[in-house]
Amino acid sequence: MLRLNNILSFILILITSVTAVGQDKNKYCIYDQVAVEKYSNKELDEALAYIDTAINMCEDLSKDPYVYHIKGFICYELFKTKDQGDPYSPMRKEAFEAFLKSNELDVNKEFTDKNTLSLKNICIRIQKNIAQNLDTIHFEEAIKLDRIYHDAVERSGVNLDLKEHDITFNNMIGSIFVELYENSKTGRESYVDSAVHYYESALKIDTLGFDANKNLGYLYHNLSIDIILAMDPEDDILTMYENQERSSALGLKSLPYLKRAHEQQPKNKDVLYGLAGIYFMLQEKEKSDFYQKLYDDLTKEQKGNGMAPPNNDN
């Protein structure tokens, strides 16, 4: 009899324990609602703790796109407020992963639009961080962030034109290297190589791109002239010849780029000025005068017409 009592007691304890565990699990399964409440009250750290616990402890919620959708917003707010938009904030990464996960689970497409818009906003913020670092001091940071941007756009599949971004970015980094070259006394060749690399990268995407053609044309043009202007006036005739040879080779290199830029924008005064200069440098006076005349005529025309009225594009 005692034995039977013991067995019954054991079964009772077991049932009680199992029920308690079940109740605990149910408790976690409402943590998403607590998280939303905390989020509304701007208690973001608390909100994150609740939503993470909900995902980890409640099996049903761990497969719910809504929970990840909420987590994305909590993390994004933490990124903006607590981390003050730090481009390397782990919260940005977490927000990104949460929105992505939500989209992955969202078979009924209930949250996909909002998630995708949020992912796009995250990408745009990275792009903004890139733009903030586009100068001769922080450009390496911009290059690093550009890789993060690429990864984010590719993984999220948001509607952002990577090609257009790459063209602009490569042109800008190329011009930063040109500025570094112009401002430095040492290591100048490597800056030129880097500038050429970035401009050519832009041209690989769009061969007829005006900016890259103009920039690369300018670069070779200016290098051609720099060689001569840097010569020692007392150089012997052989050294002079060698320098002239190098200068003229660079001048010839600049021509196809400037011509292509001119084809794209025949009334661009900078390009006309560059063409007049490089033909002059290459001893082709007639061609130089031709472009100089176009430049002068355009200058007169613009002066005659006064300033262009503002447009309403913006």
């Binding site: 011009s175 900016d211 200069g277 002059f280």
Partner: peptide, 28 residues
Amino acid sequence: ILQIALFILFSSAMAWGQGAAGDANLKV
């Protein structure tokens, strides 16, 4: 944002033009 940055950056990148080419030719 990128366009503005681009404008600021490129507005400083100018070709030497006929003037500097003329100086170089004179020097030679």
